[in-house]
Design a protein around this nucleic acid. Structure first.
Length: 821
DNA sequence: CGAGCCCGGGG
DNA sequence: GTGTACGGGCTCG
């Protein structure tokens, strides 16, 4: 029989010497199925110049003992693939299980053979070999079988293939958020219990589910609150609710590193089983280093919304901070509820009637997370459909790996053999290599009137595609005098035949144009364009990443020459544009990489459009100059400590009076409250065009600071102790303070955040770092706080406006307001 | 100046 | 799991 399904989550299992893929999937009616399909692991070995008779004999006798099962070759076939534009004869070596691949490949390499595609994740290998996309409609032939180890029906498939690229529509989403006991902001799962678990679900029909679990009895009227007897029971209830709700997507915010690992540690400590997978497997937390982990549950997709935002979507956001609060505000228009988390522990201990607020806060966080997940799911699924690896992996990847996986997938169509990943020596060599970057026309800091901003649409992708830039066509034999790169006499690219990398990139560009056209048509029909917007965005960011990929030291298709050629062409085009703008009589005030800012002067917008059309009439391929906008006023910022114009760090004021400032770093924990406060306030004032107020405010702060009037709590700097105190090779101020705390008999454990204040006096900073309780009013070092905290926090903001640090921070200087009028 | 360390997100 | 983040900023040595 035949079934159609949308695969969500993937794993493989070994049985009777065979390898089976398990595709945990959703059927059209919303029920779940696990499709089981056999697949053979393999890798390639080059047979050029090899005695294949001898190789065959050696392969037959090859057996590498491994812990559970010896790795052996179970077959081979001769194939031809293309490696960087050259045909290559290979043997496809079939092996008995996935982990046998690296073992056997290493052995063959020790014989002096060249092996390929020996480090591809088996799940990814399967998806590409079979040619199916996660989250889209797939069809399988086979039979339902008894698989008592699974909680859902099992279907043993003899054939699996793509039915259509239609995405799964209706998914059950469950968001999880925990609140923990924490005094002094310490997050210590071994010590501190989970106090609350907030759950917010949205099912296939859009019905919501709300629940907060806690284990302290107190008077309340919250209908969603369930009070357990103990933390153990709370965790058991959590397990039961997740199993009963059986979400397709379990989501959280930073849940890879915080919520799920915390739950796991507590469950282990209290002996609670978290067998949440459809195969009864436990919640799994894989540590990859001290501060990084991935949490997963087999059969459902764990979406850590934060990962997707940080890795992919954040570039699209205005906010510099990826906190749940900031991201929710920008994407949903809601903020977190305001509670004082420092009060949660004390309230739990002795003030339990106040816990209701924390329960509401807890549920609201889960609600925000679920809504973010729903909002971003289109984008996540679109990335998955283009890159062709599971959603779980896609949202945890950075751009270079997304590009690589996209290229690997497209390579299947063109019979491409993937180049190997670089070895350590190769990586360190590549890291030494540098290329000349973008052209920046330095602005003179200051205020300008009547500006028009031009942008090359997707400059690097269109250059790569228009000039066929890729490792395959680099210095081809046929085009030596034709396709020369500007400024690079010794570089040229094939002009006769479109090569693999520029080809798949060009297809992305064409696809995006197509999607944008469909979006316009949908809009004309009055339909929702969300899905088209997501697809268009996906394609854009993926295309924009090709240039970076070609110059990324870890890339399989690394080519520093291609990256260098791309920027060389880009510099050439932007310089030509500047020249042409001047010929048209415009004053160019700033240009960076792909954009050109000109003053309108006594000309009209129509003249600017004429100029743009003239430029466009000479551009090759899909290259295009666009008019990004008209701005009555704009101010440019310089890179800190230099005269150079900073990339994407400027302020523009639109005709409607909206101020947009780009390029400010987020505030960190080891900044004092006074620094954070001043930065926030100055940004607010500057963005509201109240520059004079901002200057007055800063001068006031400087005066208060110097007169010792800033309250102590605004001067506290917080730094985490990350290891045992003996383990520090270099003693920073936080370590010095922690050691003194130990001397005083206080407990200091790794993970704890120490607080300190820098005071006046002789010696280096750590010698002047004191506990807040050791510091008297006005004893703090005003110069330190001004120079190391306040000024760094706001100097760049004033530089945007054309003020030097001295102008802003010296008491006796003029404010220079005249500049603005 | 290079090396060492901490930052992000989360309570 | 056919695995192993990263770039930026600050301080010490």
């Amino acid at each position: 029989m035949e079934i159609k399904f949308y695969p969500l989550d993937f794993e493989y299992r070994l049985k009777d010497g065979k390898v089976y893929m398990y595709l945990y999937s959703k059927l059209g009616d919303g029920s779940r199925v696990c499709v089981i399909h056999e697949h053979r692991p393999f890798f390639y070995v080059s047979i050029e110049g090899i005695n294949t008779m001898e190789l065959e004999l050696r392969l037959k006798g090859l057996k590498i003992e491994n812990r559970n099962e010896a790795a052996v070759v179970v077959g081979f076939e001769e194939v031809e693939r293309e490696l960087l534009g050259k045909k290559k004869k290979l043997w496809k070596i079939l092996v008995n299980y996935p982990k046998a691949v690296p073992l056997l490949a290493e052995e063959l390499e020790s014989w002096g053979l060249e092996c390929f595609e020996k480090d591809i994740l088996f799940v990814h290998r399967y998806l590409r070999d079979v040619g199916i996309m996660p989250m889209t409609l797939v069809v399988a032939q086979g039979e339902f079988i008894d698989e008592p180890r699974l909680r859902i029906p099992a279907f043993l498939a003899t054939d699996v293939h793509q039915e259509s690229l239609e995405s799964v529509q209706k998914l059950r989403i469950l968001a999880v958020d925990i609140e923990t006991y924490a005094l002094k902001k310490e997050i210590l799962p071994q010590k501190n219990p989970i106090l609350m678990i907030g759950l917010y679900g949205v099912d296939e029909l859009g019905q919501e589910f709300k629940k907060v679990l806690t284990w302290k009895k107190f008077p309340h009227t919250l209908e969603y609150l369930e009070v357990c007897d103990s933390e153990t029971q709370l965790l058991q209830r959590f397990r039961d609710i997740v199993l009963e709700y059986h979400p397709d997507i379990l989501t959280g915010y930073y849940s890879d590193v915080f919520d799920l690992p915390y739950i796991k540690v507590r469950a282990q400590k209290l002996g609670v089983q978290l067998d949440l997978g459809a195969d009864h497997s436990e919640l799994e937390v894989s540590e990859k280093g001290v501060r990084e982990s991935k949490s997963s549950i087999t059969s459902m997709v764990h979406v850590d919304v934060f990962q997707f935002i940080r890795n992919i979507f954040g570039k699209n956001l205005k906010t510099g901070s990826f906190s749940l609060d900031a991201v929710s505000e920008e994407l949903l228009g809601y903020k977190k509820q305001v509670v004082n988390l420092d009060e949660l522990g004390p309230s739990w201990d002795s003030n339990s009637e106040r816990l209701a607020d924390f329960c509401a806060y807890n549920l609201h966080d889960a609600y925000l997370t679920a809504q973010l997940c729903r909002t971003l799911l289109y984008d996540m699924i679109e990335f998955t459909k283009i890159v062709g690896v599971p959603v779980f992996d896609v949202i945890r990847m950075k751009f270079s790996r997304l590009v690589e996986n996209y290229i690997l997938r497209r390579g299947m169509e063109y019979n491409i053999l993937a180049p190997n990943k670089p070895q350590d020596a190769q990586i360190s060599q590549r890291r030494q290599e540098s290329i000349q970057g973008a052209f920046v026309f330095e602005p003179t800091p200051g205020l300008y009137k009547d500006m028009v901003v031009f942008d090359f649409r997707s400059l690097y992708p269109t250059i790569i595609s228009a000039h066929n830039i890729g490792p395959e066509g680099f210095r081809c034999d046929c085009c030596k005098l034709v396709g020369k790169v500007p400024e690079k006499e010794e570089y040229w690219f094939c002009t006769k035949e479109k090569k693999f990398i520029p080809l798949v990139l060009e297809e992305l560009i064409l696809r995006r144009a197509d999607v944008k056209r469909m979006a316009r048509e949908a809009q004309a029909r009055g339909e929702d364009t969300k899905i088209y917007d997501a697809r268009s965005y996906t394609i854009k960011v993926l295309a924009n990443s090709f240039y970076g990929y070609l110059g990324f030291y870890g890339a399989r298709w690394y080519s520093i020459e291609c990256a260098a050629s791309t920027t060389a062409y880009a510099r050439n085009y932007i310089k030509q544009t500047i020249e042409k703008a001047r010929e048209f009589g415009f004053e160019v005030i700033y240009a960076d990489t792909d954009s050109c800012f000109v003053l309108l002067g006594d000309k009209e917008l129509a003249d600017a459009k004429d100029f743009m059309q003239e430029v466009n009439s000479h551009l090759p391929g899909k290259m295009e100059l666009e008019m990004e906008g008209y701005y009555p006023r704009g101010i440019f910022v310089a890179i800190k400590g230099t005269e150079k114009g900073a990339k994407k760090k400027y302020a523009l004021i639109s005709k409607e009076g909206r101020v947009k400032v780009t390029g400010f770093e987020s505030v960190r924990r080891n900044w004092s409250l006074i620094a954070k406060e001043v930065q926030k306030k100055v940004l607010e004032l500057v963005l509201n065009d109240k520059v004079d107020d901002a200057l007055v405010y800063v001068k006031l702060v400087v005066q208060e600071m110097k007169r010792g009037l800033v309250p102590l709590h605004k001067l506290i700097i917080k730094t985490q102790i990350t290891r045992e105190l003996g383990g520090y090779a270099s003693v920073g101020p936080h370590v010095a303070v922690a050691r003194r705390m130990v001397e005083r008999g206080e407990m200091v454990v790794p993970g704890m955040v120490v607080e300190y204040v820098i005071v006046k006096g002789p010696g280096i900073i750590r010698e002047r770092a004191k506990l807040p309780s050791e510091v008297g009013e006005g004893e703090y070092d005003a110069d330190y706080y001004l120079n190391n905290q306040v000024i760094p926090a706001v100097s760049s903001i004033f530089l945007v406006l054309g003020y030097t640090e001295d102008q802003v921070f010296k008491d006796d200087s003029q404010t220079g307001l005249g500049k603005f009028f």
